[in-house]
């Protein structure tokens, strides 16, 4: 395994970790990751009973 291999492995792992973190962050913020119109939708009822109606 040469230096280039090590650097590539680090880069791939870093990219994957960042991707997972982004998904988790979006989920926590109530955003979806469907690539559509929902990144702005809020996706939560914030306790107003919205969904129960």
């Amino acid at each position: 395994m040469n230096t280039a291999d090590i650097l590539i492995i680090i880069a791939i792992i870093a990219a994957l970790v960042l991707a997972v973190l982004k998904i988790v962050k979006n989920k926590r913020q109530g955003k979806s990751s469907c690539g559509c119109d929902c990144s702005k939708c809020g996706k939560c009822d914030k306790g107003t009973g919205y969904l129960s109606h």
Partner: peptide
Amino acid sequence: WEKAKDFLQKAFTIILIATV
């Protein structure tokens, strides 16, 4: 811009992970 950003974000998160 929102559509493009969301699409790119999905490509570099879910699809990147799925690909690997």
